Amino acid sequence: MRILTFSTLYPNPTAPHFGVFVENRLRQLLSSGEVQARVVAPVPWVPGDWAVLGGYARMARVPLQEIRHGIDVLHPAYPQLPKVGMNLHPYGLAWAILPVLRRLIASGFDFDLIDAHYFYPDGVAAHFLARKLGKPFVVTSRGSDLVTIARDYAFPRRLIQAAAQAADGLITVSKSLQDELVALGIARERSVVLRNGVDLEQFQPGERAAARAQFGVTGRVIASVGHLIPRKGNEFIIRALPQLPDVSLLIAGDGPQRQMLTELAAQLGVAERVHFAGVVGHAQLAQVYSAADILVLATGHEGWPNVLLEAMACGTPVIATAVSGCPEIVTAPVAGRLIPDREPATIAAAVSALFEALPERAATRAYAEGFGWEPTTQGQLALFRDILARRRQAA
């Protein structure tokens, strides 16, 4: 099978961790030997002075083409108007990418289907592109596309519903996201749940003392990993620290809340116990998990939080808010604990309780071994085969 992976959510040289879960799933699929793939991972282009906003100037430095892990990746630009152009994003994306796909077909890669990731604008644009090119398309929902965009914005919601109804296949990374599709009026049997897996070779228990020395932490250590944005809830973890006087917090990641979090730690008198590691490469995250006794994810919502599986694969139990896909991951005491909210007192109580009954690292690792990639890979292959078989029969 020849597939085109299409997503604005994909790593590139200026944002190597961006959408790494999309790349990981594709790499596992290619390892089956049954698929050839090209990736079209567009990057936004904004006009004039708007280019200085956010990360747009950085995205302008992304090369037009690169090879990542042996995969040919194209990064064509598409127009985007910050703040005011949300309703137009899928149209601008499809308009810019259609000639790119036609050239790709003309060059000899006449793909069998479009495998799109994230519903808006990517899945909606894939709907337009598939219709123009006469190709089947599949959309994978990954979290905020349904939990935030489809809930909060009326016009994008209608476009998402139309794309979902027209798609030849729908994938969600958790049952909770499948429930969101059903709430949009999409029959449950139209979608399949194929969760993200964890790389059990990359993420393994490491030597704890060495990992702690690397990040300068000692004693009881909890960790938080992810972009420093409000949804991730790092503020609540820091506010819990005054109730945990013997616990240090290791934060891996960067983002717009970095300064606020630094100032908050100082205001609460816990600055000496909050360690900001900055951006840690995906290949080095195992050291972060190995340095910690517990990973805390005080998230507002997630599709399928990979950090939970990565931590457990390193033998580190987790504490996570019981939202979205988290309850589908943390289902046994050796995995960790779920909390009903992300209030500082709730987090502090859960951390204290888990420290009193920490599972053996080997037991947590064994639990994570049930989340390898193979079932997801086989599920994709079965779905793609079925779609192409139905196409041949219709023809």
Rank of each mutant, 00 (worst) to 15 (best):
residue 318 V to L: 03
residue 296 V to D: 04
residue 373 W to H: 11
residue 346 T to I: 12
residue 211 A to Y: 04
residue 122 D to P: 05
residue 58 R to V: 14
residue 250 L to M: 04
residue 271 A to K: 14
residue 106 A to G: 06
residue 356 E to A: 15
residue 76 P to V: 03
residue 345 A to D: 13
residue 200 L to Y: 12
residue 127 H to K: 10
residue 18 F to L: 07
residue 199 D to R: 08
residue 323 V to Y: 07
residue 326 C to I: 00
residue 128 F to E: 11
residue 14 T to L: 01
residue 185 G to M: 03
residue 44 P to R: 03
residue 342 R to C: 01
residue 192 V to N: 05
residue 227 H to I: 02
residue 300 G to C: 02
residue 139 V to E: 09
residue 49 D to K: 14
residue 212 R to L: 12
residue 315 G to L: 14
residue 392 R to M: 10
residue 30 L to Q: 06
residue 193 V to Q: 03
residue 99 P to D: 02
residue 280 V to P: 08
residue 371 F to K: 06
residue 305 P to M: 05
residue 62 V to W: 00
residue 348 A to V: 06
residue 42 P to I: 04
residue 203 F to Q: 11
residue 358 L to E: 00
residue 129 L to I: 00
residue 63 P to N: 10
residue 45 W to P: 08
residue 92 G to L: 03
residue 316 T to C: 12
residue 152 D to R: 14
residue 394 A to C: 05
residue 23 E to I: 00
residue 8 T to P: 02
residue 164 A to N: 09
residue 4 L to D: 01
residue 380 Q to D: 14
residue 195 R to L: 02
residue 253 G to K: 00
residue 240 A to W: 06
residue 289 Y to L: 07
residue 200 L to P: 15
residue 68 R to N: 08
residue 209 A to F: 06
residue 156 P to M: 07
residue 145 D to P: 10
residue 314 C to A: 11
residue 294 I to E: 13
residue 290 S to I: 09
residue 12 N to H: 10
residue 178 Q to G: 15
residue 231 R to N: 13
residue 142 R to Y: 06
residue 14 T to S: 05
residue 135 K to R: 14
residue 186 I to E: 02
residue 31 S to M: 08
residue 371 F to H: 14
residue 100 V to Q: 08
residue 106 A to V: 04
residue 39 V to I: 07
residue 52 V to Q: 15
residue 367 Y to C: 07
residue 146 L to K: 09
residue 84 V to P: 07
residue 101 L to G: 01
residue 312 M to G: 05
residue 135 K to L: 15
residue 241 L to R: 05
residue 70 G to A: 01
residue 217 V to D: 11
residue 75 H to C: 09
residue 106 A to N: 05
residue 207 E to W: 14
residue 369 E to I: 08
residue 394 A to S: 14
residue 116 A to R: 03
residue 350 A to H: 00
residue 384 F to R: 13
residue 67 I to T: 14
residue 54 G to K: 13
residue 269 G to V: 13
residue 4 L to I: 03
residue 367 Y to Q: 05
residue 101 L to M: 01
residue 138 V to W: 08
residue 344 P to Q: 06
residue 279 V to S: 14
residue 336 G to W: 02
residue 184 L to N: 00
residue 284 Q to L: 03
residue 44 P to L: 00
residue 87 N to M: 14
residue 261 L to N: 11
residue 213 A to L: 08
residue 266 A to E: 15
residue 203 F to D: 09
residue 247 V to F: 10
residue 301 H to P: 00
residue 306 N to F: 06
residue 299 T to P: 13
residue 280 V to C: 04
residue 59 M to P: 02
residue 333 P to E: 03
residue 192 V to D: 04
residue 169 G to K: 03
residue 80 Q to I: 10
residue 307 V to I: 04
residue 279 V to A: 12
